[in-house]
Design a protein around this nucleic acid. Sequence first.
DNA 1: CGCTCAATTGAGACCTCTCAAGACACGTGG
DNA 2: CCACGTGTCTTGAGAGGTCTCAATTGAGCG
Lengths: 242, 242
Amino acid sequence: MPRTRDLQHPCGECAFYDKSVWQPVQSGSISVLARRFTRNDLAEGQALYDQGTESMGVFCVSKGLIALRTLHADGKSTLLKLAYPGDVIGIRSFLTNSLHKTEARALLPSRVCTVAHRDANRVIHGNPSVLTRLATRCISEIDSCHERIIATATTSNKQRLSDLLHGLMAAHGTRAGNHMCMHLPLSRSDLADLIGVQAETMSRLLKRLQDDGTFLVSGRHVQAPVASLTQDMTGHRQSGNA
Amino acid sequence: MPRTRDLQHPCGECAFYDKSVWQPVQSGSISVLARRFTRNDLAEGQALYDQGTESMGVFCVSKGLIALRTLHADGKSTLLKLAYPGDVIGIRSFLTNSLHKTEARALLPSRVCTVAHRDANRVIHGNPSVLTRLATRCISEIDSCHERIIATATTSNKQRLSDLLHGLMAAHGTRAGNHMCMHLPLSRSDLADLIGVQAETMSRLLKRLQDDGTFLVSGRHVQAPVASLTQDMTGHRQSGNA
DNA sequence: CGCTCAATTGAGACCTCTCAAGACACGTGG
DNA sequence: CCACGTGTCTTGAGAGGTCTCAATTGAGCG
């Protein structure tokens, strides 16, 4: 791991450098990367790409939070995945050379690094181990899908919501005294998609969590006692509660 | 597409040759493949690999049907995926060099072709486009996970079961007069996993489909009027039916 | 025959869905 | 400043669905 390489590498400054899919490129390809690499800042709500459009390349989230959604014929949409800093998105359409099946939209002010289609191909051609890294990212995605399927079959909606909120709290929360609090980056409807229920049910689930004292929710403001962050092994089964 | 290569290639006789992940190897690697390639026949119920074991290589289903399941701590298991002929399995543990997260077990008498770990690496090293093919398989897997998530959010359990049975019928059914019939390769509990309900609910869903006249189910024998195979656009929403 | 495991059925509690009506926040324009 | 959208979120009520537990039936087998 020569330090000099880090500095020339466009991802060199990034906190996720060692896990970057572009990390193992040879010096020859670095210049390609460095020259064509672009950084984009996205405002909250801005789309990185739309469903049905062509792949512009491979994107890596550097800051913020990106939502991947599919839009249905009836106008509704389903949130499929949250992409956090370090996550690579757009691999699908890039590798299969097909249109985006999802849209990517910023839930928070975000920064995304882009390697254009042609350049990505060039870099991969120069160093196939980049492909291994891309494939590994795909596998992580499969793993998280499987976990989601298992969680759906294994734990109650209320429990999964609790788990989800704890996860979001870990990512977005700040400690204040003996409780954590955060500004929810998701709408009720998005939360509902992640749990797999209707929006109205989400409201009711949140109320039930409040009644239990696990969370204190008001609009997008969420608070949780620090104590609750380490437990919650109860109510894991389907209907899941007293 | 030189015909000579097909014959030397170990996958050359396979119906899925042109889509084989091993198809684009150069002549140098063909000998590696041909020498170490193995075919395994699995009896119904026999495991190809167990959860928690090390990767033996990359497997390609050539015949039959393989179930990928995860076993939970409580002794129960969840069917995650059915692998049909042409499908490649075990990619996860191979690429990430980690233990199997699922077990693979034959639901029907099956044949599986295996490329041992070391040989697979050698072939990939010789021709990285094999990696692209592997990655593409991963992406298909992601797509089908996403479809499953969307289906869960979009259609009723009954409708999804109907869709599932139609799919199984297309794969396993034979035409007899003006109806299709098949021997179900799955237990009620497996069906339940695929839909995401309890086994008892599966029994009741099946009965409801029978009452509708969509299917005729008795044990593992399933029959459907040919007419029903092209329609079924009704009852697509959650609670889904009268 | 009696065992075992899979599948069905029943009953009650609980949950979720749907439709519809309020509450709430927020921005615009008067 | 306030009325008035608009969109989001909450709440209510009823119907229907699913879960759980438990008992029963059924199929395969020594």
